[in-house]
C-alpha cells in the first residue's frame, strides 16, 4: 500500500478557476481540459512568481524538497500539454489545506485570522476597530498562558503540566515509565479497546 500523501500548505487559492485557449480551432480542441491541482499551482507560484528556490518553497508548502520538485515538474508538464495541444486548463483539486495570517486588534486586544484573503484591510471582527496590526506567530497566539491541562500517570497518579501539541499518550511517566493520560479524562476500558 502506498504511503499516505502529506497535505500541502497553500497560502492563497488562485483568483481564477482556469484558462481557455483562443484562435482558429480552439473551441473544437478545448473540450477536454487539463486539470492542474492546487498544489501544482502553488508550486508554480512560489517557484516562478515569488522566485523562491525549491528548498525554500518546499518548506513553505510543508513537503520535502524532492516532493516539491515532483509537484513542480507535474505542473510544468500539464501546462506544456495544454499549450501544445491547445486545451483548457482547469485549476482544481489536490490534497491541500489553506493557511492564513494572524492579526492583532490594538483597540480590544483580541487576535484573529482572516481566511478570506480577498479582504485587504480587515476590520476587527469583535469591536469593528480599524487599528489592526499584523501578528507574527506560528501556531496559536499566547499559547503558553493558558495551558492549564495536566498529564497524569494512571499507575502512580504522578501529574505534570501538559505540553501543547504533544499527546499525553506519547509521554512516559518519569517515575514508573507508564504512558500518561489526560488528567480528568475517563480511563479507557482496555477490553473494549481490543475488540
Amino acid at each position: 500500500m502506498a504511503r499516505i500523501k502529506r497535505p500541502r500548505k497553500i497560502l492563497n487559492p488562485p483568483s481564477i478557476k482556469g484558462f481557455k485557449p483562443y484562435g482558429s480551432d480552439a473551441d473544437l480542441r478545448s473540450a477536454d481540459p487539463v486539470t492542474v491541482l492546487f498544489e501544482e499551482y502553488e508550486a508554480l507560484r512560489l517557484s516562478d512568481y515569488d522566485r523562491l528556490n525549491h528548498h525554500q518553497a518546499s518548506i513553505m508548502m510543508g513537503v520535502s524538497r524532492p516532493t516539491f520538485t515532483r509537484i513542480y515538474a507535474a505542473a510544468l508538464q500539464k501546462i506544456a500539454i495544454a499549450f501544445v495541444e491547445g486545451r483548457k486548463i482547469a485549476i482544481e483539486g489536490g490534497k491541500v489545506y489553506f493557511d492564513s495570517e494572524w492579526h492583532h486588534c490594538n483597540a480590544c486586544g483580541c487576535y484573529f485570522n482572516q481566511p478570506d484573503k480577498n479582504i485587504a484591510n480587515p476590520l476587527c471582527p469583535l469591536c469593528g476597530s480599524e487599528k489592526i496590526s499584523d501578528y507574527e506567530f506560528s501556531g496559536s497566539p499566547q499559547y503558553s498562558r493558558f495551558s492549564d491541562g495536566k498529564c497524569k500517570c494512571p499507575e502512580c497518579e504522578y501529574e505534570q503540566a501538559h505540553q501543547p501539541g504533544l499527546p499525553c499518550k506519547a509521554q512516559a511517566c518519569p517515575q514508573c515509565g507508564h504512558a500518561m493520560i489526560r488528567a480528568g479524562a475517563p480511563r479507557r476500558n482496555h477490553k473494549t479497546k481490543q475488540r
Partner: peptide, 22 residues
C-alpha cells in the same frame, strides 16, 4: 485560545478564529 492543530483545519473550512485576549 486554540490548540496547535486547529488552525489548519479551520483554514481549510474557511472559518475565522478570534482569540479573546481578556
Amino acid at each position: 485560545d486554540f490548540g496547535l492543530k486547529i488552525k489548519p483545519m479551520l483554514d481549510s473550512l474557511n472559518i475565522q478564529m478570534i482569540v479573546v485576549n481578556d
